[in-house]
């Protein structure tokens, strides 16, 4: 029984962390149309910073791992630093990569950023211990006197506190004038610029806010699993979260939660229970194949996701300034059939 409880609490923790990732990407792409295929880099930045600032000093040649920012800061500070690291890195990357350009160019450049970061961190052992990564990150909530199983649930609760706070905050943000400005920018960039919105600043803002959330999710993740290495943040991980928000429904936070539940949690966990066949590792490879197929199928069959973005209620003046809302203003499926 306790094995199941342990397993389910693990799933709940991953679910919470993936919700944070999904919210971050949905804010950036679903609301603002900013393509962040480097998402995982900002999560990794948070994870590394949280790990390095809680692991304690790097004791020189005797130590088996080397890292910068080595310090042993008390409980909530590493997490705060992780959040800030994600935001700061997003600010730096955003400064050169958020220029006005076609979305696919932007996506490709973000993907390149993701691969450069991975290569540099893997190759340079002095940064964060290279390909072996950091391990032995202490449990942040260990001051609470509970057993290991109860600790799992305490941590799950801790993650969900952040989920709820971030969920409410981001939903409030996206309903605010700022959020409407983001949607305007997404749907009609030129028109949004013409009514006086500063497109460059808006993009940078949403990129940094998303980076903060990504850094937070990375910090929470590493403080749970206790280790972090380049194997954990390939570009494919970003793709999983993208698949989740596309499946669930872009621009709809309930859709994001649903998508995260379906794709990274249920779908990727169910495969753990399949009988292993073939050589070891075959099932893992096929899992990625199916994720790719799932995304392609979703875009073909239900491009707006299971819970599509709600249409904005028409205001005075009748017609909306744009015909179809949503980041996928397409799908003229068959003539004569109104676009749902």
């Amino acid at each position: 029984m306790s094995a199941w409880s342990y397993y389910i609490s693990t799933l709940v923790i991953y679910f919470g962390i993936d919700i944070l990732s999904g919210i971050s990407l949905n804010l950036q792409y679903g609301y603002a149309g900013v393509v962040n295929l480097a998402f995982i880099v900002f999560q990794a930045a948070g994870a590394y910073v949280a790990a390095a600032t809680s692991l304690g000093p790097d004791t020189g040649a005797a130590s088996f791992q080397h890292y910068i920012f080595a310090s042993n800061l008390p409980f909530p500070i590493p997490l705060v630093l992780a959040t800030l690291a994600g935001g700061a890195l997003a600010g730096v990357v955003g400064l050169f990569s958020l220029r006005r350009m076609r979305r696919d160019y932007q996506g490709a450049i973000m993907l390149i950023v993701s691969l450069i970061a991975l290569q540099v961190v893997t190759a340079d052992v002095s940064l964060f211990n290279g390909s072996n990564g950091l391990t032995g990150v202490p449990h942040p909530l260990s001051f609470i006197p509970v057993g290991p199983l109860a600790y799992q649930w305490v941590y799950a609760g801790w993650v969900f506190v952040f989920c709820v706070v971030v969920y409410m905050a981001v939903r409030w943000l996206s309903r605010s004038p700022w959020g409407r400005a983001l949607k305007a920018m997404r749907d009609q960039e030129d028109a949004a610029g013409a009514i006086g919105l500063n497109i460059t600043v808006l993009r940078l803002q949403v990129f940094v806010v998303g980076g903060l959330i990504a850094g937070l999710s990375g910090g929470l993740l590493v403080e749970y699993i206790g280790a972090w290495s380049p194997g954990a943040w390939g570009y494919a991980e970003t793709f999983v979260i993208f698949t989740a928000i596309f499946v669930g429904g872009l621009g709809n936070y309930r859709g994001v939660v649903l998508g995260v539940l379906l794709v990274p949690v249920i779908f990727l966990q169910v495969t753990q229970f399949l009988p292993q066949f073939g050589y070891p590792g075959l099932v893992d490879s096929l899992e990625w194949v199916v994720i790719g197929l799932l995304f392609m199928l979703c875009l073909l069959v239900r491009p707006r996701g299971i819970l599509p973005e709600r249409k904005p209620v028409a205001t005075e003046g009748g017609a909306l300034p744009f015909t179809e809302p949503g980041p996928l203003p397409y799908l003229r499926r068959r003539a004569g059939r109104p676009v749902a």
């Binding site: 076609r102 979305r103 696919d104 996506g107 793709f239 790719g292 397409y330």
Partner: peptide, 17 residues
């Protein structure tokens, strides 16, 4: 089906996987 360049790029990324 009217996919734009970005959706197409994501499709190729999925196909790449």
């Amino acid at each position: 089906r009217g996919a734009k360049v970005f959706e197409m790029m994501m499709v190729t990324l999925g196909l790449g996987l």
